[in-house]
């Protein structure tokens, strides 16, 4: 199975001083799946993202992505390999327009140099045109094309989240890692987001999704990994994980779990 995995993690460990943020976490994401990553606040979900995308080095373990290890790669090299991410606290380029944000995402797949920029040769002009066209397409894909020429910081919250997804998609990722994309969205926006996630998967991009909105996670994810205090406590199809007593305990506390068990008996 691990041969078929797009991303296989093994024994991932990360400490911050005395805090064990991640302890021996392992999982495998299959191509074409939407893989959920859940857990209570402080469970280590975002740390796992940061370690995966090279923002922090990890203390132990390996990531094998698309057949080759990721260890020691810088964030930009990870992006080049085909992992794009969004951020829990939106990190758009606030003073660039929406379309320019997406155009920045095309950087890693384009080639123009200083000389191209200064002399504007035919190849650079064609590339620029391609970048612009593709960026507009992606804006339409996520549904913020009407705000293409507004500054990113002036967009509504939900639009900013979707713009971040468009920017990430512009890097042509094989794996799209989304850190709480539904945070702060209302019910309608979340429904649109769910449709968008399904479209992205349909169009061939695998998704790793951190999310607190359980309704969204349960309806969209094929499989889910549950972290608690940096440890993996459950993994499997969404429906199974939901019933796992360890998961209920992590979310609701031991007493409630006991109580529920009693009630069921």
């Amino acid at each position: 199975m691990s041969d078929a995995a797009l991303l296989a993690a093994e024994g991932i460990t990360k400490r911050f001083g005395g805090v064990q943020a991640l302890a021996d976490v392992g999982f495998a994401i299959r191509p074409g799946e939407i893989y959920g990553l859940i857990g209570p606040n402080g469970a280590g979900k975002t740390t796992l993202f940061n370690v995966l995308t090279g923002i922090y080095p990890h203390d132990g373990g390996t990531f094998i992505f698309d057949g080759a290890p990721l260890s020691g790669l810088k964030p930009n090299q990870v992006a080049e390999r085909g992992i794009a991410r969004t951020f829990q606290n939106i990190r758009l380029f606030a003073n660039l327009s929406a379309v320019e944000n997406v155009m920045v995402g095309r950087h890693v797949r384009t080639h123009a140099t200083v000389f191209g920029a200064i002399f504007r040769n035919a190849r650079t002009r064609a590339e620029e045109k391609g970048i612009e066209r593709r960026s507009y397409e992606l804006l339409e894909y996520v549904g913020v094309h009407k705000r293409a020429n507004d500054l990113a910081k002036h967009l509504a919250y939900g639009d900013q989240r979707r713009l971040e997804i468009a920017r990430a998609l512009a890097t042509e990722p094989k794996l799209l890692a989304l850190d709480e994309p539904a945070a702060g969205m209302n019910a309608t926006e979340t429904t649109t987001l769910k449709q968008l996630l399904q479209n992205i998967r349909r169009d061939g991009t695998t998704i790793l999704l951190i999310e607190h909105d359980m309704k969204l996670v349960m309806s969209v994810c094929d499989r889910v990994l549950v972290l608690d205090y940096g440890k993996k406590i459950a993994e499997g199809p969404a429906a199974d994980v939901q019933k796992n007593p360890k998961v209920i305990e992590a979310y609701l506390g031991g007493d409630v779990a006991e109580h529920l068990k009693g009630a069921a008996a």
């Binding site: 930009n76 794009a84 380029f93 660039l96």
Partner: peptide, 14 residues
Amino acid sequence: EAVREDEIAARAMG
């Protein structure tokens, strides 16, 4: 400009 606006996001974008 991306580096000016947000260096971490710029690196994450490759």
